[in-house]
Nucleic acid binder design. Structure first.
Lengths: 339, 339
DNA sequence: AGTATAACCCAAAACGTTTTGGATTTCAAG
DNA sequence: CTTGAAATCCAAAACGTTTTGGGTTATACT
């Protein structure tokens, strides 16, 4: 059995009150006694029982993170990196990280409610915000602390961190236009994710600036996986007039696109250029390497976590909204169009 | 304020004992009272305070999982998939998942000790076992419940789930030998991970069976990333006599190898064949697609979690050790060698 | 009538902390 | 010698549950 504060009290002949206060370095305990208590605690291998501590203090020192998992073969590098970010930041701040997994959908809200109602976590980190985001509406309505990665239209007051992906897309368009592209296709994610709307908005604005508009048949929707990118790209290639540039809304789909183009006997960066978004590690290693917009996911995870901890500690919190500026990574999947 | 059991008691005019027992469906509470209590609980939106419950019950219903993160740019698809597996299984069994991140090394044990001593979790899932694994030695020595993904030499009694990767490597060798390969190189992980020793053992045995031995200069050590695979492969290509087959010990390094071979102007599957191990989703989408051995990581995560829950519930547990049989995925990165 | 049984209920202790609201002692100043 | 402040200390309450070890009542059986 682990020793309790009571055991220490007995050993050093003080009350448990004094022991507790000594361990917390209150200044109504003599230096002598403190030393005595610390010594004893160390000898006996005392470590506070977190459950008891938290019950008394009425908070949990725990951050909740619910992974939206899409099916078993789910391997978005996004999540491992983001998780590493919040995990490390949480550890540094002495917070624990409670992770649950739940496919987006009806059942999802139960998971959130369960965690807040059973008082299992002090706050949430929400990821991949959606246009009409139940999770955020709920947490916001009951005033439960959270930080979102991603904005939500109509809820501009919520604490979030996001990348200025409109700008990212504009950079991509500028780059492609400068290379000479005029026929743009796009593989969009389903538009209920806010990042999708922002990226599409940036894309359209960027094109408009150059007087280009995108033909409806050039805009397809993919599911953010390589497979989705692959299939959509085959459709695009089958079109009577092929686009010369395919702007994928994330790297995974872009990688699928590259493969589809190659399997069709075309050369990426010549007949068709491809761009991604995210700059996941592998995008540097595909063949040809992928032109994309970098998004420092690990750092964003860290920042989101730090923001949340600040919020929980009610530290003055000057910028509750953070918008990061993106950087274009020009690699070999884009080039001057031939044909 | 959330209502407590006491509020319900007041409302239905019963003792808190009775309320508690009613909610837990004890049979010394009348059906009437139970209904009354349930009704009131529902109306008031009562949800038990988990902290209090757990303090009283002296366990946590929580599983610990400490991600060994290697630096910020860490994006092993392995982890997101594995995490999805344990996460989903845990949720189904009404367990929570407490995740921490910690680079392997000196500091790592502190994290484990902190979790067990502060009684934060009921058991651990350990991943990527090492040859002399402190984590497992520690947990085993204090009899703290855990399940490992991976074996540990000398500790055959611990509960683990693993893939028979010796056999996986033998399948790879058989395949390559049948294609006509005789000059094998290998990119190994550092041998302190047990999975590395098993894969290397399988490789050597497989080669020995065909009377082949591997030249020492053909065995290099990589760090499991694409980058590592890329660099090691350039070294191999620079050798006076090139190998015809490069056996990488995981897919990520194999993908790096493919890229390095292509950047050197050679053709994968002709001058040099490449094999991986793991069958991560992207291995199907690299160009050329990767011959590899599949390892159902999501399923393994699920099973590990279920094993741990069984162990915690002391359910009869007939096979504490599980060894999965691998399957060879033949794709296009391997072919008949041309000299 | 007495007693055994079943059905239902509850007060209080327990889990291991932190916090509240003093109590006691010491010592310097008046 | 008294007073007040400073320095130490502590008993008990509190956090919200579950569990222990009963108690009471009604009914049925001798």
């Amino acid at each position: 059995m682990q020793p309790t504060i009571r055991d220490i009290a007995k050993k050093v002949n003080r009350s448990i009150t004094t022991v507790s206060r000594a361990l917390h370095d209150y200044d109504d305990v003599s230096e002598e006694t403190k030393e005595l208590v610390r010594q004893a605690a160390k000898e006996m291998g005392y470590v506070a029982n977190k459950q008891a501590q938290l019950l008394r203090q009425q908070h949990t020192d725990t951050i909740g993170f619910i992974l939206p998992t899409f099916g078993p073969r789910f391997s978005d590098p996004f999540f491992s990196e983001f998780l590493a970010g919040i995990g490390n930041a949480a550890a540094e701040q002495d917070y624990d990280l409670l992770v649950s997994t739940c496919p987006p959908g009806a059942h999802e809200m139960d998971t959130y409610e369960k965690f807040v109602q059973s008082r299992r976590v002090d706050g949430f980190i929400i990821v991949r915000t959606r246009v009409d985001d139940q999770r955020i509406r709920y947490l916001d309505s009951i005033n439960f602390p959270f930080v979102a990665f991603g904005r939500v239209p109509g809820l501009e007051h919520i604490p979030y961190i996001d990348e200025n992906s409109e700008q990212g897309m504009r950079l991509i368009v500028d780059h492609l236009v400068k290379l000479g592209h005029r026929r743009f296709a796009c593989i969009a994610p389903s538009l209920n994710m806010t990042f999708a709307t922002h990226r599409m908005k940036g894309l359209k604005e960027g094109l408009a600036k150059h007087g280009i508009s995108m033909r409806p048949e050039y805009v397809l929707t993919g599911d953010l996986t390589e497979k989705g990118g692959y299939e959509r790209t085959l459709e695009l290639i089958g079109l009577p007039e092929r686009p010369t540039a395919i702007v994928a809304c994330n790297d995974l789909m872009a990688i699928g696109a590259i493969r589809a183009i190659q399997d069709s006997g075309l050369t990426v960066g010549r007949e068709i250029s491809v761009t991604g978004f995210d700059d996941i590690p592998i995008s540097e290693y595909v063949q040809p390497s992928l032109t994309t917009v970098s998004q420092p996911i690990y750092q964003i995870g860290r920042s989101a976590c730090e923001m949340l901890v600040d919020l929980l500690n009610e530290v003055a919190f000057d910028r509750k909204q953070i918008l990061l500026e993106p950087a274009l990574m020009i690699r070999n999947s884009t080039g001057i169009p031939i044909a």
